[in-house]
Design a protein around this nucleic acid. Structure first.
Lengths: 157, 157
DNA sequence: CCTTGATATCAAGTTCACTTTAGGTTGAAT
DNA sequence: ATTCAACCTAAAGTGAACTTGATATCAAGG
């Protein structure tokens, strides 16, 4: 416990749940900022905790650090998100979550129909949809939305 | 087009959508097998296409290669999955997909309530749930199921 | 035979999000 | 003054899933 409102690294790690190495990493990546003491040790404003919470939340929603940085950079003057910012950004997140949910639901439903067909048919299966040249026109791909697709079949120039 | 039913690398890459490097990688990892021609070039049985389709499907459901290998190894005699195998395994996948869907739905709903609270409260927010020492008992974590949790807050020994 | 394009191997590189290691410094308490 | 936990930096390591690069061989048409 220190007397005024600057936090030490130890306090930040304890209260944020992040490892010191992660906190330092985020600083190098410009996601958070730190002041330095005379001896060169980091001191953090209390707001860094909120920022770290934001980072964790965004990461849990599936954003990459680059994306998170972009969101944080959108905050004018590098301030901590206000309620309005939060609402705006959460709209963004919600859309993303909805997409993921729908993608998974489609995948699940397709899985059900695949059980019936003894599937993995190279021609028709929407889950495997191997991008067989013979099936290039297949509608199967529609079942696997981009958000879930791991690899792009047929990247022939 | 070759005359009998062994496939060349080129045919496999064209028909599976996988890059040759990926196919070779899967072979080193024991996910697929290949015979060799006199000159040392790979030849594949046609069933490798089905296996690759299976691999892609499983990967799209979110399984790691290790998990996929485990599933494939479960097939007695290293054969291509039959309808029964497929049904058994898809049950596995379905559970996984259901989990992911529910996790995302909870996250989405929590996001909605967070908009109302101007959130990211260190104490209560289920989305950020930073593992603040003061909030160690928080129920917030319940909102973020393991499948979605990126990092384990407070791993203090 | 020669050329060309497809394949082969093996090691090393890539990306992401950090962690680990090694070795040195700080700062608060005794 | 001494001690020792907490802190610092820079560089290298991790793991997943491949890709890239360098270099060499194969296969088939002309």
């Amino acid at each position: 416990m220190n007397t005024h409102d600057l936090l030490t690294m130890g306090e930040v790690t304890r209260r944020s749940g992040y490892a010191a190495s992660a906190v330092r990493y985020y600083e190098t990546q410009g996601l958070i900022q730190a002041q330095r003491s005379a001896g060169g040790q980091r001191t953090f404003e209390r707001s860094v905790l909120r920022r770290l919470a934001f980072i964790r939340a965004a990461a849990n929603v599936g954003l990459s650090l680059d994306e998170i940085k972009a969101e944080l950079d959108c905050l004018p003057g590098d301030r901590t998100p206000t309620k309005a910012d939060w609402a705006r950004m959460s709209k963004h997140w919600r859309r993303r979550l909805e997409e993921q949910i729908h993608a998974l639901e489609r995948l699940r439903d397709n899985l059900d129909s695949c059980i019936g067909c003894g599937c993995l048919s190279l021609q028709r299966c929407g889950i495997s949809n191997p991008g067989d040249a013979a099936a290039a026109q297949s509608t199967g791909a529609a079942y696997l939305p981009k958000v879930l697709r791991r690899d792009p079949p047929r990247r022939r120039p």
